[in-house]
Design a protein around this nucleic acid. Structure first.
Length: 106
DNA sequence: CGGCTGACTCTGG
DNA sequence: TCCAGAGCCAGCC
């Protein structure tokens, strides 16, 4: 049942993976890409960029491999992302880095 | 069908 | 640690 190729498109497949991320946790683009299968970290980022504003996909829980938020949305999108994560209980280091052992998923 | 765009990751210096 | 370049691919016009 879990035939990834059964999904209509790569982007929708990626969105499905992101929805599986529980609140209070985060994941990386590369991780989501591997879970989706057949796609790369870039595809995940591009898929997130194409998400609508009222999407039900927790795009905020997806960050880069460094455990940090990548600048996007003219720089303000990343700020919003950080606020949303803090609302869910995710802690950031003074440098804006998330502890991989505490919040990274899976 | 061609060209442009984009929220990444890796390696070398 | 930071910076620059290369690799990579699905959407959209």
């Amino acid at each position: 049942m879990n035939d990834p190729l059964s999904e209509p498109s790569v982007y929708l497949r990626i969105q499905g993976i992101v929805r599986q991320i529980p609140a209070g946790r985060v994941s990386t683009y590369g991780q989501v890409a591997q879970l989706a299968g057949g796609c790369t970290a870039r595809m995940v980022g591009y898929a997130m960029a194409s998400l609508p504003e009222g999407t039900d996909v927790p795009w905020q829980r997806v960050i880069n491999a460094r455990g940090r938020i990548s600048p996007h949305g003219m720089g303000y999108g990343s700020i919003l992302q950080r606020q949303l994560l803090e609302e869910e209980g995710v802690r950031f280091s003074p440098d804006g880095v998330i502890d991989r052992n505490l919040f990274f998923w899976p």
